[in-house]
Design a protein around this nucleic acid. Sequence first.
DNA 1: TAGGCTCAG
DNA 2: TCTTCTGAGCCTA
Length: 716
Amino acid sequence: MEGSPETDDEERVHPRVIIHIDMDYYYAQVEEVLNPSLKDRPFAVKQRFCVVTSNYLARQHGVRKLQPVKEALAACPELVLVNGEDLTKYKEMSVKINEIMHRFTPHVEKLGLDENYLDVTELVAERLELLDNAVARPPNPTTISGDREDCLGCQCGCERRLALATHLAKEIRDCIYRELGLRCCAGIAHNKLLAKLVGAVHKPNQQTVLLPSTSGGAFLASLGCVRTLTGIGEKTAQTLGECCGVTTVTELQRVELERLAKHVGHEQAVRLKHLALGRDDTPVRQTGKPKSVGLEDSCPSISVRADAEEKFRHLLVRLVKNIADDGRIPIAIKVTIRKFDSAKRTTHRESKQEKLLPSMFRHAGGKLVLADGAQERMLTIVMRVFERMVDLRQPFNITLLGLSFFKFQERRVGSKSIANFLIKKSDIEVQSITNLSNESITLSDVSFSSNKSLTAMDCESFFGGGGSSDAGSLASLSGSESDVEPSPKKSRRLLFQTRRSKDRREDETTLSKLRVADLRLNSKEYDHELPSAVSTSTALVTAGSSTVTSPSTLSPTSTPSPRNVSAIRSSLDSPMEVSPSGNHLSTQQQPPLQDSFFRDRHYPLLPGATVEFIEQIPLNHVQHSKSTNMLPPNVDREVFHALPTDVQHELLSNWRRAMGPAVTGSGSSGSSGSSSIMAGASASGNPVGPNATGTATGASKAGTKNTLHRYFVKNT
DNA sequence: TAGGCTCAG
DNA sequence: TCTTCTGAGCCTA
């Protein structure tokens, strides 16, 4: 199929549709929800001596963000102050907000606790499909490819898609308000940068869409100062002003690239120019677990070692609590201090890191805790690092101490288990999934009955509940209690993630490589990944304890009732939502990312997950490659085609090698023929389980047991 | 890889 | 005497 004109056209898709959602004065709103009596009073949330946010009533009195508390009180004597140093409640609310967003799309990227980007491109496409051609498709998809300057008068349906997204944004905001009592703003545009910027135009509790009907540059120019552009901070703004005389967006748009490059380097110059012109092709990255978890405390002055040690002890205890539920173990710690230079009257930060032994942690009651004596050992390490930064023989003045865990490691995995293969690897590329000939890919017997959904507990018992076997190591993925060992040098992460056009191009050139970025195994991300698969194929997927069922629970109106369909239709026929001022904000267009609607949907292959296909929604959109006929007869074609192209190629190649002429599949369904075809290990001749023979013989029942192949076999 | 800097909310 | 705390990404050595 590659290269055929039809395919190219089909794959040429619209610009993305991005919604940026920003909670209004977030901390203050959370406080109001928890304590409604605050609503009618001017109040501010403070951390230490500083106001971090306030409600609008306080703002009307001149209270500002990051204002010293003293000043704020002077400006507004009746100001109520709430201590916001403990972020727990804000984090918890953020999780709830996130859960709501994930009902609409798995493509959610967190930006701090109170902002999120949602890529609703697919959702919009789904809804348009549901409108049953009520909305015209682009007559000529080629017209929307390339680096167009704008979308003026385009016939590609961009405006309708954005219009539909405004209704989505409203639904999401309503949902958040209804369930959590929180108000927010939304910006809708074709990329993250513009969505964020346009969303800030009308606040609070409003939404704004940037329509591609006039010049996008004009909108950005209207923002004024370069500092308003996301990605240009204080330092960059200063550099631009001092070196190039550039202070406004308009000036940045006009300044010559070469001149800019002289001062900031070519790449940075290009980036800045793109920002000024509203170009941003960065994808919405589904937020996973944090790469680091830290705490820091500022303090008036620490000049004695014992005080520092005491502070660190408290930080350590709090920090361990903070990662107790993470499910991973940190194997490095970073110690940060802020030194006050009394001569210069300035402060500066320093940090140093040190490795940790996994044996310093243990699991108790499903939570990560410090092992016996580990607190003192860890504290010793911390103080050793501290003394590398602070000369105790000299007077010192420390105004901040911080600790941060990083380099997280998944829980125990055996070196020869598939679980090990699935663990994170820091390198970008991993060896092909089918080149695992040296890995012992072993699954213990697990029912793939279409009627049974496995819980985490079920998985544990299926996999041997934390035993030392390879099967047991799989259990660790689903949360068993077991010891930890250092991660292997070349561990790997696997989870299928939506791939974009760039990656697809790589498919064509680097068939034997998988980008590790596209292959992750991470419970949270994993959960998030499922809906897109489900919504296409109506698969029922249960992984661990979280269950995703029907598409309707995933995206509240993605499979609307007839009434909903007509509602969507009428909403599209009604005048488009634009900025309240009536302006049609417009933007320059990006070259579209090639998000193939169906082909990029990957079904994660996770041990412990049951995948049931209920073929209710026709899958005739799935692009079947020529290679379909090469599939072994009992391979589930839908699963196969949901895989990345390169994986498909490799599997086919392995099957061919393993089967020889036998794999010139007829496509005849469900035959119990000779197809004991093994992916990966078995194809290379390595036995992978008690029933594995490394040959292509044997009844399919026996042959599919304990192999990766089983994942491709249809459930009946 | 370590450490600093910059940026973000 | 201090504009908080948290996390990510980039750059350089």
